[in-house]
């Protein structure tokens, strides 16, 4: 992360260019004048072989992570944390102009590129999930949950809901929550259905 004031100003300019013209046009030659700096300054701030959009998205992802940490850090059961975080993330990203621009403007080339960031996001969230797992472990006997796997799944679902259209209307957070509940019903069905229904019949 470049934290200097000048680097931030250049990234702000990059964001404007990106939102107006899409990611192919977000090149140093357009960004530098918008930020009011020379090309030399831009390269000095972002690096000689700067991938401007990549740095812009790294900053945006950091903001996304910060928002999750701010909203989803209260200790709760791992399962509840999982749903809360997926629903929060989908809602957050739906309202994010950068994600929207990438999705609507240039879906074919933008999409493979967007999915590249899942490992980065999941990696950054791991400490938070680790905390939830530990909390759950003491309260609920969660012996074997790996923070890495849990985070990976949460982000997979978030990106799926972001990118892949649904047959049902998932714009409402409550609908999204219900959708995830289906997974829980399967996760809870750990007994053999035959033995269950046979018992029900004999009663």
């Amino acid at each position: 992360m470049r934290t200097g004031v000048l680097a931030q100003r250049i990234l702000d300019a990059a964001e404007e260019v990106f939102l107006e013209h899409g990611y192919r046009a977000t090149v140093a030659e357009l960004v530098a004048p918008r930020a009011g700096v020379s090309l030399a300054t831009l390269y000095q701030q972002l690096g000689e072989d700067a991938d401007i959009v990549d740095q812009l998205f790294h900053r945006e992802i950091q903001r996304f992570i910060d928002a999750i940490v701010a909203s989803c850090s209260k200790p709760r059961s791992l399962r509840l944390w999982f749903v809360d975080t997926v629903v929060f993330s989908v809602t957050y990203l739906r309202g994010n102009p950068l994600a929207a621009r990438l999705r609507i403007d240039d879906p074919e080339s933008g999409m493979p590129w967007l999915t590249r960031y899942i490992p980065l996001i999941a990696g950054q969230l791991e400490p938070l999930v680790d905390m939830m797992v530990k909390h759950s472990r003491s309260g609920e006997g969660f012996a074997q949950a790996s923070a890495r796997v849990v985070t990976d799944w949460a982000m997979r679902l978030v990106f799926s809901f972001m990118t892949t259209p649904s047959a049902v209307d998932l714009r409402e957070p409550t609908t999204l929550r219900q959708h995830l509940n289906v997974l829980f019903d399967i996760g809870m069905a750990t007994t053999r259905p035959h033995s269950g229904s046979a018992m029900a019949k004999s009663e």
């Binding site: 999915t115 590249r116 899942i118 490992p119 999941a122 990696g123 890495r148 796997v149 985070t151 990976d152 982000m155 997979r156 679902l157 990106f159 799926s160 809901f161 892949t164 649904s166 047959a167 049902v168 219900q178 959708h179 995830l180 289906v182 997974l183 019903d185 399967i186 809870m188 069905a189 259905p193 035959h194 269950g196 229904s197 029900a200």
Partner: peptide, 29 residues
């Protein structure tokens, strides 16, 4: 009663989502 009473279309959709994600997206693991 082989499966719990879930919304069948939602169930199919979310399972397809999981499979497509595993095919299209490199994860942490």
């Amino acid at each position: 009663k082989e499966l719990p009473e879930v919304d069948s279309s939602l169930l199919i959709e979310i399972i397809v989502r999981l499979i497509l994600s595993l095919l299209s997206t490199p994860g942490l693991n």
